[in-house]
């Protein structure tokens, strides 16, 4: 045969054999024994690698799960995306008990829309909240409020949060939100909080993070919490879900029964809810709930205004 063909065949063949040999030896020598359950456990997980569980991706979480299961308890671990169902499945597979946990969702604790907290300045710089936050207090002058530049939107893997073009506030789509908590970490002002979804999607929270005194806060934002404490007094005696610290009210989601009594008493309308407080006694029809879920932020605002 022609040597022009033979030589390449021989050299390439020899090189291939050599490489195969090296690969084989390396694979043999550096083989890592791994628990086969990790791969199986990972199969139960959503596989979106959002990092919401606090581990590097779903596989990292699966490793942690297997390790914890060997110790007999995986209750400290939670996949926020898959939620309770996924955790139960994994728990059954790994043979450990999993406690039921409430589904959660991200809520935005600022209601300083363009209208309520009108911009006094314009910011000319990189459109990143984290940069803007490090440099000045925001176009509205509130050192605690939403900067509206959308760092939370940029990190959301599920397209569940967007900046409303009119209010310049983030709006969480409760249907898409898996409460992975990535936006919580991305927000330089810690405005976003993961709270229980609540029974029948009824949630009440204080839409403000301001720690300034009332007068100062009101200068910047008409819907700021001024720390008057009226809501805390309105909260039923047995519940006492509202605490007041540093001029700011906070509703404890674990205690709150979403009765809505605090909403109408707030003088500034800083308390937000996913339902109309007026219909709190009448059983809300599922259609109504859908409606309010869709509009989350806006509905809450309207609810406050009426």
């Amino acid at each position: 045969m022609n040597p022009v063909i033979i030589f390449p065949i021989l050299t390439l063949g020899a090189a291939a054999a050599g490489a195969a040999m090296i690969l084989f030896l390396v694979a043999k020598k550096f083989k890592v024994e791994e628990d086969p359950r990790i791969d199986d456990a990972a199969d139960f997980l959503p596989g979106v690698n959002c990092g919401g569980c606090g581990f590097p991706g779903c596989r990292g979480f699966a490793e942690a799960l297997v390790e914890a299961a060997d110790k007999g308890n995986i209750s400290g671990l939670m996949c926020p995306v898959g939620g309770s169902d996924t955790m139960t499945e994994v728990g059954v597979f790994l043979g450990v008990e999993v406690a039921e946990s409430d589904p959660t969702v991200a809520v935005v604790r600022c209601n300083g829309s363009r209208e309520k907290a009108p911009p006094k300045l314009s910011f000319d710089g990189p459109a990143k909240c984290y940069v803007s936050h490090a440099l000045f207090c925001g176009e509205h002058g509130c050192a605690f409020g939403c900067l509206g530049l959308g760092d939370c939107v940029a990190v959301c893997e599920f397209d569940a949060i967007r900046i409303d073009t009119e209010t310049r506030l983030p709006v969480v789509d409760a249907k898409k939100c898996v409460s992975c908590g990535v936006c919580v970490k991305a927000c330089p002002r810690n405005i976003i909080e993961i709270r229980p979804k609540g029974r029948k999607e009824r949630r009440v929270w204080v839409g403000c993070m301001n720690l300034e005194k009332g007068g100062v806060a009101m200068k910047n934002c008409k819907v700021a919490c001024i720390g008057c404490g009226k809501c805390a007094k309105a909260c039923p005696e047995k519940i006492r879900a509202i605490g007041l610290e540093k001029n700011l009210a906070y509703i404890d989601p674990q205690k709150c029964i979403a009765c809505g009594l605090c909403i109408p008493v707030c003088p500034t309308g800083a308390i937000l809810a996913t339902f109309q407080p007026a219909v709190k006694k009448a059983k809300a029809s599922p259609g109504n709930l859908e409606q309010s879920k869709k509009e989350t932020g806006e509905a809450a605002q309207k609810g406050v205004e009426t």
Binding site: P119, K120, S122, F123, D124, G125, F136, E139
Partner: peptide
Amino acid sequence: MSRELTIS
């Protein structure tokens, strides 16, 4: 405080 002030 006038609106047209720019912070950068």
